[in-house]
């Protein structure tokens, strides 16, 4: 409950402060957000599975973000940045879908 409130507060802060994204961060932020979402859904699923571990969640969250950003960075250096970004988004999207499917099975048995 409190983390959900934290999410809402974060969104509100982002809207009201309206910070400008630094240039060096601009290619990585969207991918990092997707990766973090993946970690969040994975965490919810772990909660429902009864195996949630805060240390694991934090590490998975941060490593997801860092790895996603790193892949995009590497892709930019290799000249395939946009393609690799697309790849990362697809992979993370698939994982989000499968996690959501698992959550759905837990909650609705369907």
């Amino acid at each position: 409950m409190i983390p959900a409130l934290g999410l809402i507060v974060g969104i509100a802060l982002g809207i009201f402060l309206d910070p400008s994204v630094p240039v060096w961060l601009q290619p990585y932020l969207p991918i990092a957000v997707i990766a973090a979402l993946d970690a969040v859904f994975g965490g919810i699923r772990a909660v429902l599975d009864g195996i949630f571990n805060d240390k694991v969640f934090v590490i998975s969250f941060l490593s997801n973000v860092v790895v996603a950003a790193l892949i995009v960075f590497l892709g930019d250096q290799l000249g395939v940045g946009s393609q690799l970004s697309t790849g990362v988004v697809v992979v993370l999207g698939i994982r989000i879908f499968s996690n959501v499917a698992s959550i759905r099975r837990h909650l609705f048995h369907a």
């Binding site: 934290g6 999410l7 507060v9 974060g10 802060l13 910070p19 994204v21 957000v33 934090v58 969250f61």
Partner: peptide, 19 residues
Amino acid sequence: VATALALALGFAVATQVQA
């Protein structure tokens, strides 16, 4: 910890959407 991460995520999402 979860709240802090959620806060950061929400902030990032809102920032990115506005950007």
